[in-house]
Amino acid sequence: MTFNIFLQHLANGISLGSLYALIAIGYTMVYGILRLINFAHGDLIMVAAYIAIYGIMMFKLPWWLSFTLAVIVTTIVGVIIERAAYKPLRSSPRISVLISAIGVSFFLENLAIVLFTGRPKPFPQPELFTTMLEVNNVYIMSLTFIIPVVTIVMLILLNYLVNKTTAGMAMRAVAKDFETSSLMGIEINKIVSYTFALGSGLAAIGGIMWGLKFPQIQPLIGVFPGLKCFIAAVVGGIGSITGATIGGFLLGIMEIMLVAFLPSLTGYRDAFAFVLLIVILIFRPTGIIGEKITEKV
């Protein structure tokens, strides 16, 4: 393998890793605040992708407007899911909320089958994303660069929102201690909604880029990326935003490199993610950026 080809694989890995990271952050933020694995999170990818498709194909919107709308609507869907399916269970055992999350996931998938049929729909490919760029005789699609750039911009923005704003400070407080946070006058439900909004917005951006990268959209499109990003979040250390980012990039790069260096294992590409999860759970259950496991009292 020449160095150029290696670079091409690396670019692909970083690009895929960015996508994983964006989506994994939603898992980790929700887990950080509610100690809940939001299994419906992956399906938001599908929701965003379909909205984007319909905006362009049916309503003839320009792609950027359609994409923006998709992000906004998906964000609202994420918040509604929390209000409808998780908030009423706030004081129930955690397992009830988890089951509710699985229920929401099935609901969204089947609703999509009813609304959009099971037949795959092509995702529109605006020219900006499909231009081929030539670097040193290596051809790379512009999308491969756009994805990491968008991800980095989002990460910087998120870092600002979480660490520099009052709402972000409240979010970090609520993640640690519901009761004391409410004694500060923080309205827990508002902060939880805010967290879901941020996570869902990122998933929507991830979903649109997923659609651009793998332009065949069907109702179960969110299942596999959902599972993989959940793995990325766990590998990085669930509850930590930095962890989810690292986990996402790591998983993406390793997956691409596995296929690049050992082409005979291509069929095991998805299995690899799960093997990684098992290994991490055995040897480092708290992930790479291991948050110490402290039970909330």
């Binding site: 009052t166 400070m169 409240a170 407080a173 946070s181 500060m184 006058g185 923080i186």
Partner: peptide
């Protein structure tokens, strides 16, 4: 930040 949260309202 802890003190700031005390004045959250």
């Amino acid at each position: 930040e802890n003190l700031n949260l005390g004045a959250y309202l």
